[in-house]
Simulated scan of single mutants.
Amino acid sequence: MGLTRARIAVDAMGGDFAPEEIVAGAIKASAELDLDVLLVGDKQQIDSLVEKYNSKETASVEVIHAEDVITMKEEPLTGIRRKPKASINVAMDLVKGKKADAVVSAGHSGAAMASALLRLGRLKGIERPAIGAVLPTIIPNKSVIVLDVGANVDCKPKYLEQFALMGTIYSKYVLGNEEPQVGLLNIGEESSKGNELALATHKLLADNSQIPFLGNAEGRDVLSGEFDVIVCDGFVGNIVLKFAEAIGEVMLQIMKEELPKGWRGKVGTVLLKPNLRDIKRRIDRAEHGGALLFGVAGICIISHGSSRQGSMFNAIRSAKEAIDNDVLEKIKSYNNQRLESENNHTEAASASSK
């Protein structure tokens, strides 16, 4: 789809600072990234914000009315079913009807996932979806994708194998790693370490020729740059994600508090301003956009609930990158090869037993 102009549906009512910050970020993304934005939500509120932020009419924006919103207090599946006209449902329907190429939401992540599963469905051969978050590493301009970071609290080895395959494709075609190195998050480097899930998954990953498996990755390795893809269950992954985000926020806060002290600090701040800007770009979670929901039959980006204009801009940029690099079609192709290989293996084993 890289040759056509991307059309991205944005849940304008989702998030702590919706709709204003969401609309502002979406308009900025449309103007600067050359894409069409479909803002889904309360038309009256959104129209006034579009007039405010798109006064020069440099962005391509269409407002799609949705009469309901799934709140953070609602149980995801119940809310999705009770409110078919909620903004996240209307946005998903736009993708299902091929009127949009992707959905971006900073609203209830559970609702976004439930809506995607019900309306878009799972990809063939993918048993569970996974949320993949891109994090910075200590190596400049190098990122790592961690999945799952919250979609599945409990996992089977087969799920993690599928996560690894999808993460490999994303790392190669979107993050630009020609030979992605995949790691299984564990408590030790040795293949004999870990619980039953880790031991069984290690064998599956090592035996799968489609997955460039490097071995186990310990917690200290996640941001080392040694690995391009880290796989784990959603319980562990969500803890890793929240901890990494907190570390970034703590570092930024420490710099704000310590650098301006005294005249030397003020002079140093001025001299280091370009460097400080680069540091913020590397560790601020807003700079890394949202997380892609892997395994559903459509591009869906789940952004932070606290997203402001910058975060929404980068979440939409992430959606555009996934569209431009045909991530969905590549996952389908690789997965079909996996399924064919498994079927051939099963048939061969059946024939040899006769």
Rank of each mutant, 00 (worst) to 15 (best):
L3K: 13
T4R: 14
I8P: 15
D16L: 05
A18K: 04
A18W: 04
A18H: 06
A24S: 15
G25C: 11
S30R: 00
S30N: 04
V37I: 09
L38D: 03
Q44K: 15
I46N: 14
L49A: 08
K52H: 11
Y53D: 12
S60H: 12
V61C: 05
H65Y: 07
A66G: 03
I70R: 11
M72Y: 03
K73N: 12
L77V: 13
L77C: 10
I80C: 08
R82E: 10
P84Y: 06
P84I: 02
N89A: 13
A91W: 10
V95F: 07
S105T: 01
S105D: 01
A112S: 02
A114F: 05
S115R: 02
L118R: 01
R119L: 15
G121Q: 03
K124M: 00
L135I: 11
L147W: 08
G150T: 02
A151L: 09
Y159N: 15
G167F: 02
Y170I: 02
K172T: 01
K172G: 01
L175Y: 06
N177V: 12
E178L: 11
E179G: 05
E189Q: 07
G194C: 14
L199D: 00
H202M: 12
A206R: 08
D207N: 08
P212D: 01
R220F: 07
R220E: 05
V222C: 00
I239V: 15
K242A: 13
A246H: 11
I254F: 14
V267K: 12
V267T: 10
L271T: 00
P274M: 08
N275Q: 05
D278I: 05
I279H: 04
C300D: 09
I302G: 07
G305F: 07
F313C: 14
D326Q: 13
I331C: 08
N335Y: 07
Q337F: 08
R338A: 09
N343S: 12
S353K: 03
